Simulated assay, not measured.
Amino acid sequence: MRLLNHLPDTIDAWARGAVGAFDTVREVHGRRAPGTCRVWELTRPDRSTRFIVKVARNATAYRTETFAYRHAVPAVPAGGAPLLLDCEPAHFALLLTAVPGHPLRELRLPPTEEREAYRRAGALLARIHTAGELTPQRRAAVQEVLDRAPQRLERLLHVCGDRVGSRERALLRALVAELPHLGPLPIAFVHGDAQPRNLMWSAAGRAAWIDFERARFAPAVQDFVRLAAGPWADRPALRSAFLAGYGRRPGPVERHALRCFAALDAAGALVWGAQQGDAEIVARGRRTLARLTEGEFA
């Protein structure tokens, strides 16, 4: 991955027209392969203000993220997520405020502070989950996605090939086959990629969620999958802190749904991680698959 510390000319002109002068440009996420986004951090000459320019991976991601910033982020307390300052549809570009801090996955915090970071993250996610209007059309669209989940799994397994064994395939199929028939689940406007890489934490003790390109209406518990597959796996205190901030614990049907969604996420992680050369995502998929097989995922 090659990072470029300058913006493409057309995007540079657009950004300067929106926010004025900046003299430092740092690309913080470069395109690894087709279908991934690019992100730059811009800094004013006096170092007082930073901005983020994000070029979405495609038109769908651009529309999804702009919708999230316009309709969901306003429900979050100030500083709990970036704000959308401008957008440029011709280039799928968004201009955002930069929230303070660093991704939680990059930090080594004292246990008490880490639990507080997860508690505040849970409180913010609860606010995101209440955003937007769940219309009958959107509820029907959620069910349609659940109905198609088994077909999606089959496509992922086809790409995985022999990286997923026959016993593992049978388990994934059995779990994902339940998704269309689980019964009523609380539906929310989910972040879609809630995990430590997208959770910012500052020295002032402020949490913020970033990267809303997968935000959508979906079962609320789906936002817990990547947390359960990652930091919660060996740190139940972090799970407890997060859910305390969130304000409720998943019920029995949601807990079972979490396993079913984790099965689909594991297959997706194995495919996406391999395609993007992201060893961390591949490892998450393998770990989730192992925990599901051993009956330990919860």
Score class of each variant (00 low, 15 high):
N5V: 03
P8F: 11
I11H: 00
D12R: 13
A13G: 12
W14H: 06
A18N: 00
D23I: 01
V25F: 09
R26I: 12
V28T: 14
G30L: 11
R32I: 12
G35V: 10
E41C: 05
R47Q: 13
S48Q: 11
R57F: 03
N58M: 08
A59H: 13
A59M: 02
V76R: 02
P77S: 08
P82R: 02
L84Y: 03
L84Q: 00
E88R: 13
H91P: 04
A93M: 04
L94V: 08
T97V: 09
G101Q: 06
P103V: 11
R105E: 13
L109W: 02
P110Q: 11
E113H: 09
R115F: 02
E116I: 00
R119Y: 14
A123L: 09
L124M: 04
A126Y: 08
A131V: 08
E133D: 14
L134A: 11
Q143N: 13
V145A: 15
E154N: 01
L157T: 09
V159Q: 10
G161L: 10
G165K: 01
E168T: 05
A170V: 06
A174L: 07
L175C: 05
E178N: 00
E178R: 15
L179A: 09
G183M: 10
I187S: 06
W201E: 04
G205V: 07
R214V: 03
D223T: 02
A228E: 15
G230A: 13
D234N: 05
A237S: 13
S240R: 14
Y246L: 03
G247E: 10
R248L: 09
P250D: 06
P250F: 06
G251V: 05
G251Y: 09
V253T: 15
E254V: 10
R255Y: 06
R255T: 12
R259A: 11
C260M: 09
C260W: 09
F261V: 07
D265Y: 07
A269G: 09
W272F: 15
E280L: 11
E280F: 11
I281K: 06
I281M: 14
V282F: 12
R286E: 15
L289G: 07
T293E: 15
F297Q: 10
